[in-house]
Amino acid sequence: MIIHTIFFYFFSVIAIFSSLMVITSRSTINSVFFLILDFISVGCLFIMVGAEFLGMILLIVYVGAVAVLFLFVVMMLNVAEQKQSWFIGKKSTHIPTGLIVSVLILLELLVVVGGWKYKEDLMSSSTLLLSNISNTHQLGLVMYTDYILYFQLAGIVLLLAMIGAILLTFRERIGVKKQSYLKQISRSPSNAVELIEVKSNQGVKIDD
């Protein structure tokens, strides 16, 4: 148990430290790297409490895909180093907005966690059996039976978001040459290459 506690504090200290560094570090790239470290240590915490599926999915989805895109955007935008962090130098105008948002999130968390404590069968499920099957199995059992509607709806929302993003960035440009793969692959040497015997001092006539 001692080892367990040591590991727990190890990961949670790293998680808290890196989440602080995300908002205080001066270079944006470093912020993203600390965000990744935060994700990883939270994933480790998930695994430590026995939610190995959630931990792995956190690693795959957030670290493996979302954070890569963050990093991509930050690197491409070439954001200059922030001249002022929020507690050094001049006062930033973002503080009130940030405070409002964080207070709202705190209230929401309080409502959710409090409601869960207050009414124990709030999110209970008839399919969920407390037995020694792994939590991945249990998640599968619940997700495709009791919560199939929410699961599918979440999928549709994601699909809509994807289609919307593609639609927003899609524009047809006129006058751009496009490559047709079919044409490129189906070209054969017989109609693409011509062998000509060139006579001296006459050259070749190119017809285009």
């Binding site: 599926f53 792995m56 690693l59 795959i60 493996g64 990093l71 690197m75």
Partner: peptide, 25 residues
């Protein structure tokens, strides 16, 4: 011999991008 072995492999191989991005940047 963990329960979610294949997910672990998948997660680690998806982290492999970072070495390359960090090196390149």
């Amino acid at each position: 011999n963990i329960n979610v072995g294949i997910l672990y492999l998948f997660a680690i191989s998806s982290l492999g991008v970072y070495g390359i991005i960090m090196g390149g940047w």
